[in-house]
């Protein structure tokens, strides 16, 4: 009886020609992809004359570091930064806790109507927020919250359907015995959630916090609707109106755009593993 041989490593990778082609595609594609990003950095370090000469080239640079100070100095940067941080970090904390609480209930507490309610939660995932934006605006107007950060912050205290779903899936994978033992010991549901499940949620908390940070740091739609004066403007909103303030000074604009993007890039490098884990988790199950 002949035993079929397992494919060797080289066979599995394919013939040499294909591998070289794949590698070439990778290198060329990556270069093309990262180029606009590098060009953005290069432009941020040029003088306006340098930009006119350079065209598509990354070199030469004039090393105009003052572009950063000047670009940011042309508007109340610290105020916008504070507003951006407030309207990002408060929602991060709020949405992590509220979604965890609700997700825990869906995963662990057996109750009449839970299945139907969960279907409703999932169905709201398909509902674009633009559909409700007019009445929401009127709601916040009645609440006297126009031109404040509250319309951006308040809804996150009620959990997000997507994160509730993620937490539920995460908790379903934890052993059920955790709750049984605690229930026998007489612990209430709130204690079980707070002192057993929440401390075990570190990976999912980091993933949701990062995803929430990135989406709210770049939040433009709501900012454009609710924030009208300089007092509460966020960085994306300020960046969108940059040209009307500074004309067409490209280096200043690119420097400012870089600063606005920087926190997300930094966060990515700090929490790379968790972000990739979190994003893949969203697609797989």
């Amino acid at each position: 009886m002949s035993v079929p041989t397992m494919p060797t490593d080289a066979e599995r990778r394919g013939p040499l020609g294909t591998r070289i082609l794949a590698l070439t595609l990778l290198v060329v594609g990556s270069a093309g992809f990262v180029y606009p990003f590098l060009w953005m950095i290069a432009t941020a370090l040029r003088t306006p004359e340098g930009v006119a000469h350079a065209g598509a080239a990354l070199w030469p640079l004039q090393w105009q570091w003052s572009n950063f100070a000047e670009g940011l100095g042309s508007f109340p940067f610290l105020t916008y930064l504070r507003n951006s941080l407030l309207s990002t970090l408060v929602p991060v904390v709020a949405v992590v806790f509220s979604s965890s609480l609700v997700g825990f209930a869906f995963a662990r507490i057996r109750a009449r109507g839970a299945g139907v309610l969960f279907a409703v939660v999932l169905s709201t995932l398909l509902l674009p927020q633009e559909v409700t934006i007019v009445p929401q605006f009127i709601l916040f107007r009645n609440l006297d919250m126009i031109d404040t950060l509250w319309p951006i912050i308040v809804p996150t205290f009620f959990g997000s359907a997507f994160f509730i779903f993620l937490y539920r899936q995460f908790y379903l994978r934890l052993p059920e015995a955790l709750t049984d033992a605690a229930l026998i010991d007489g612990a209430g549901w709130f204690r079980i959630w707070f002192s057993i499940y929440l401390p075990l949620s570190r990976p999912i908390i980091i993933a949701t916090a990062v995803l929430q940070f990135m989406s709210y740091w770049n939040n433009f739609f709501q900012a454009a609707i609710y924030l009208t004066t300089d007092r509460w403007k966020t960085l994306p909103l300020a960046l969108a109106g940059f040209q009307s303030v500074n004309g067409t000074d490209t280096p200043l604009l690119m420097a400012t755009a870089l600063v606005v993007t920087a926190p997300c890039v930094l966060l990515f490098f700090v929490a790379q593993r968790h972000i990739i884990g979190g994003i893949s988790f969203t697609g797989s199950k």
């Binding site: 594609g29 990556s30 992809f33 990262v34 606009p36 990003f37 953005m40 432009t43 990135m214 770049n218 939040n219 433009f220 994306p236 909103l237 960046l239 969108a240 940059f242 490209t250 604009l253 690119m254 755009a257 606005v260 993007t261 997300c264 890039v265 990515f268 990739i276």
Partner: peptide
């Protein structure tokens, strides 16, 4: 490298590509 650009979203991306 391929993931990095997806961090430049929204207004920053629009502003960059206008240029």
């Amino acid at each position: 490298i391929w993931y990095l650009p997806s961090l430049v979203t929204g207004v920053a991306q629009a502003v960059l590509f206008i240029w």
